[in-house]
Write a protein that binds this DNA or RNA. Structure first.
Lengths: 100, 100
DNA sequence: TTTACAGATGCAAATATATGAATATTTAGG
DNA sequence: CCTAAATATTCATATATTTGCATCTGTAAA
């Protein structure tokens, strides 16, 4: 349980911007594919989700920018992975709430 | 852990729309004020957050519409409360992830 | 039944986000 | 160096969200 100090607007902005990063069907799908510490390249995600390469890169950039994902370049590929594996709980929590 | 069937686009849409409902600084603040089963009126929230009455009502409507909150009218007041108290964990989870 | 309070809704302007085509950048291999 | 593959970026357009004023609706009390 957080106290009133933790409700300050800066923290609210950060929490909301992180949530906003995740709150898109494509980006929720990306998170689910990365559950359990998996690492995928842009091309793999672009193939898995059937969306344009540039669109994929945009979405991954948003997730990385907001601290949801990390990336590591290995040769020509860039691997993306969850910064905090616990974040995938968010989606599971929501899905539990919607399955009644 | 969810299987591939649970990644279908309908579920993704639902999860994303619920997250989108929460993903706003005002609405995150509302959630935090309603933690622990608390019930607050529109006016109370409007005073707590220092935002316009109509803006408050719009935000609460979004949260209710997307299944995050419930409301009950009692006389002239409408009390809003969390539909699933577990949802407040989402914000706490995020804040833990951002406090390193 | 009038009045005032609490809340909801319609609307418009400002702002933000999403998408993809085109293009640029980075890297490995020849 | 030249090329091709993988990824990132720029840009424009389309769409969605946010905010608050004005207004409408519902309720209680006088």
């Amino acid at each position: 349980m957080l106290n009133i100090q933790e409700l300050d607007s800066n923290r609210l902005e950060i929490a909301a911007s992180m949530l906003k990063a995740i709150a898109h069907p494509v980006r929720v799908a990306v998170l689910k594919h990365l559950e359990g510490g998996k690492k995928l390249t842009v091309t793999e995600i672009h193939d898995l989700l059937g969306i344009e390469q540039s669109t994929t890169s945009h979405h991954l950039g948003i997730l990385k920018d907001k601290g949801v994902l990390c990336s590591r370049r290995e040769g020509k590929n860039t691997y993306y992975y969850l910064k905090h594996d616990i974040l995938s709980q968010i989606v599971d929590c929501l899905q539990r709430c919607t399955c009644e």
